[in-house]
Design a protein around this nucleic acid. Structure first.
Lengths: 226, 226
DNA sequence: TGCTCACCTTGACCATGATCAAGTGTGGCG
DNA sequence: CGCCACACTTGATCATGGTCAAGGTGAGCA
């Protein structure tokens, strides 16, 4: 099991600062809502398990992880979110997960009620939320497939490809998260992640410049290693 | 890897029989839509990967599994559905998964457009679909947690408890699916599933009457074994 | 009643990935 | 510029669960 960063060591942002200004947050190409952009420190919590669901969030810059802790301390990372992505949408009234900034980030807080209002006023807003949820569902199902049926090498390979696609750059990745985060996302240990990455570099599929910057060596090289 | 039942050996139901009568299908306590109840044979496909998404489905009786095949033949079971449950909701226009009847079942086919129409006419219909999707999302996230962070014994234990809850009976389960199906759902092999169940019976957490009927021996006995 | 096939169980062995335990950078900061 | 802490890597060993290979069991049917 991975060691856990103790939440209490870090700042927790669980409400928009009083008197904060309102910004217009683009939730989708054709939908905006009023919200507040809040700077969130590295490792600070944005919401925690059991909190009441009050906002929908958008990553303005930085990176966020959504996690769940088991009672015995095991940690599972549900998803990572990067600049431009929405998160925090849950059906119930209390959060089933926690969300923390992986690196210092700017997060847009949009009150749930602000989205609901938009939804009543415009045809498109409800479908935006619908599409968001559908996307999350597809992501979760894909994640389950990866966790259930792929080998360690295949998991890491799939992870790197996903990161490359989502950060927009197709031949280089700057990982904002630690090996521990990757391990808890892929259902592996930190040692296995590290070994797998080392092996991939030895086989020429990737190249490191520092532990967090990876150059992908094009073609099917990643798939071949997996 | 589990052996796969070859789809081609079985009937495929991919469209409502022409001239079939229309029934009123209850999608939620307060929402009904027109649809057709179709008998589906054991192992027959209801829709297959790549099909166009045309319907939403409800299990009237029986059991359904939603699956995905990897190119190398590995199979992943995304979910099981039982009497009263809806399935087949996908955001895109083509199915990412296949669905098959686990046992002879009766399935209600509701044309997607029939739901969309309902959604435009009534406030509640859109929220029914929303809630359905939210439920699926929660299920998928839970599944990912189970696949990523639980041991074999914990996976089987979680599976049995889920089955007990969803089939309504709290101290006995009639499993409609094979060990192969369970294995492909839990990211295990059929042998591991079998061994784990045997161990659970030896330790007094469950009791078999035939391979598919399980009596749960109350209390925390299942959790203790896991 | 007994045959048959599919499904399930069990056993022996193996491999992937976990665990335990040192090391080795390297980025941040005085 | 050098120290320190933390993150990462590497190695040795172990255990969980996979693989391969027989057997058992029971529902359906002649």
């Amino acid at each position: 099991m991975a060691t856990l960063a103790m939440q209490d060591d870090y700042q927790t942002i669980r409400a928009v600062p009083a008197g904060a200004g309102l910004d217009l947050i683009r939730l989708a190409p054709e939908v905006v809502a009023h919200g507040t952009i809040v700077p969130v420190a590295r490792e600070a919590a944005i919401f925690v398990q059991e909190d009441e669901v009050a906002h929908v969030y958008k990553v303005v810059s930085g990176a966020v992880r959504v996690t769940r802790l088991l009672t015995d301390g095991r940690r599972h990372i549900v998803a990572f979110y990067f600049a431009g992505e929405l998160f925090g949408l849950e059906a119930g009234d209390t959060h089933q997960f926690s969300a923390e900034a992986v690196v210092a980030s700017r997060i847009a807080f949009v009150r749930r009620s602000a989205v609901a209002t938009e939804a009543e006023n415009s045809d498109s807003a409800i479908w935006v939320v619908w599409r968001l949820m559908a996307k999350e569902l597809a992501r979760a199902q894909e994640h389950a497939l990866v966790l259930g049926r792929l080998s360690a090498a295949e998991k890491v390979s799939a992870f790197l490809r996903d990161m490359a696609v989502r950060t927009g750059c197709n031949n280089a990745i700057d990982l904002p998260m630690s090996r521990t985060d990757i391990a808890d996302y892929l259902g592996l240990t930190i040692e296995t992640v590290s070994r797998t990455l080392t092996l991939m570099e030895r086989q020429g599929a990737i190249r490191f410049s520092g532990a967090r910057h990876i150059d992908l060596q094009g073609g099917r090289s990643l798939a071949r290693v997996a």
